[in-house]
Nucleic acid binder design. Sequence first.
DNA 1: CACACCGAGCTAATCGTTTCGCTGTATTTT
DNA 2: AAAATACAGCGAAACGATTAGCTCGGTGTG
Lengths: 339, 339
Amino acid sequence: MTTIKDVAKAAAVSTATVSAVINDSAYVSPPLRARVQAAIDDLKYEPSQMARNLKKGRSQLIGLVVADLANPFFARMVWAAEAAVAAWGYSLVVFNSDEKPENERKALARIRALSCDGALVVPVGLPAHYAQRDAEGHGIPTVLFGRIVEDRRSDTVTIDNVAAASQVTNYLLDLGHTRIGSITGPLHLTTGRGRLDGMLQAMQQRGLAPEPGHVRAGEFREDVAYSVAREMLDRPDRPTALYVANGVMALGVMRALADLSIPCPQEISIASTDTIPGIGGLRPRLTRTEHPIIEMTNEALRLLVDRIQRGDNTPPRNVVFQPALILGESCAPLRRGSV
Amino acid sequence: MTTIKDVAKAAAVSTATVSAVINDSAYVSPPLRARVQAAIDDLKYEPSQMARNLKKGRSQLIGLVVADLANPFFARMVWAAEAAVAAWGYSLVVFNSDEKPENERKALARIRALSCDGALVVPVGLPAHYAQRDAEGHGIPTVLFGRIVEDRRSDTVTIDNVAAASQVTNYLLDLGHTRIGSITGPLHLTTGRGRLDGMLQAMQQRGLAPEPGHVRAGEFREDVAYSVAREMLDRPDRPTALYVANGVMALGVMRALADLSIPCPQEISIASTDTIPGIGGLRPRLTRTEHPIIEMTNEALRLLVDRIQRGDNTPPRNVVFQPALILGESCAPLRRGSV
DNA sequence: CACACCGAGCTAATCGTTTCGCTGTATTTT
DNA sequence: AAAATACAGCGAAACGATTAGCTCGGTGTG
């Protein structure tokens, strides 16, 4: 590899001058500058980011830890994040915790070891880890995404899960449904707990409550939702409407309905928070809330870059986004007599 | 941050000894070792990968450049790649070229600047760029994925596109279809060209050829496929069966069918190469080939790590995977009289 | 008893940059 | 004309680690 020294030698100048030329960090007379530039081009010299970063104490790297890369929601987040960090001049190092605290720990350790300038994390739920930013304000700037954990030291960007769920549930209630079931995610996550709570709240406000067997919580996974749905919907006392907590689960439920030959929305109404991008071909189209992943990701990175570049030490900010209800054809008014 | 010097001072030893302890690279007497370890724990010292990498001339980073992060196929590839590189002890830096040569160039430049130890690239098609590995064998080990470009210096991992397409087309032909159309990708890519060729070959072997208006090539995108399909299928002379070149495009076609109220497979048979993971809820289930993304990605990284770790300088290897035909319900035998 | 040898740890050079502070010259100010 | 200021460029010390080579006692051998 050709180094700055080679260039310096070739141009018969000092390395300091070469550095000044490539960084425009000091005045260099035109003729000299030209000579140096010629040497650079000639030797096809490219400065080593590594050495530069070691010296400057930064890495131009941003770590992204998502909870489940197989989930299209997070895949889309990677997409948005890559575009955003590239625009800011950083590169994105991606980690998948797969909902496992142990993996998350490893990822964060790696992020520290690589001296990433910042981290965007979808936490799997154990508060301890994120204390990167310790008491004295040291540590890697971190933004927590999507899920709230007990950490008053990081910025957070989340969605209002309770509102999302109750919005969807209210829609089902407005259609006349009262036997509403739910399939939600892990209750130790705010995305799981909050959505279930929102659903329960909405029903409670109308003096209703779901039947015990109609409330299920599992993992945010297609196959889990599929089996839960098959089991719940195969019984005679099945609900007339079902609230599903996220996009992949909704897909699992639709698959179960197809397999059980239960027509939707004729026999059952399905509504969910979150959806999968690009499945417009799926009929019936899902009634669901849509979450502004891209805006959320951009905002998260804006916060992060703020901290990184401005050494911003103001108290943590917590940005909460609101979901939007999008109507599909997966819900129908309750047919009298089917209760 | 605490450095190796701090630890050395705290333990009253030289930095060499500390280094020996953390790397197990030389014998250190038990008592001294203990003292050093205590100092390390005490100061919560973590060696800086950056400094270490600068010295050792590697970065423990692998760059991944995909052609379209918004495509679930590549999202899944990221998922598989992250897992694989983590298992090998590397971290994954992700780039999206978005099918634009300019972005790809930037990504590769960045990969070089970061001194990534290797690169896995889904090329957008211009051969020049990948000449990282120059004549003298220098440059970053690179594996080209999915698409073939004129570069005899890199390993490649691809799928047999021609076989995939002709397999699918033959299936349609076996069902009696003769008016078969196709919607494929950009013809400058082997994934586009090859699939179209495979389809044409299969027909040719039975003495058939598609009608000119039934052969369309566009981008590998849902919305593009949607509009092409709408246009092609809204006409009276539409084909009785349609071959679609990839998963997202198939989704777009299904959406077009839904919007046009053309029942599938009753009125038209749809078959594709590639599909989208996790859309089992979509009915009818698509008849398609499935591509072993995970195995392909693992294999690609195996090749890459081989080159990196063994400094393997053997001639480039080209691994070609075979797709598997999976039957859904999106195809039906040709109804007599509908030709 | 002198010799070589060995084991345990240290010194210092090195990786490829950036940057502080210096030098020697040229220009301006008094 | 002397003093002050500015300018262009250089030398060398960092950044935080690794590692070749050295030192310095202690042991084993002839």
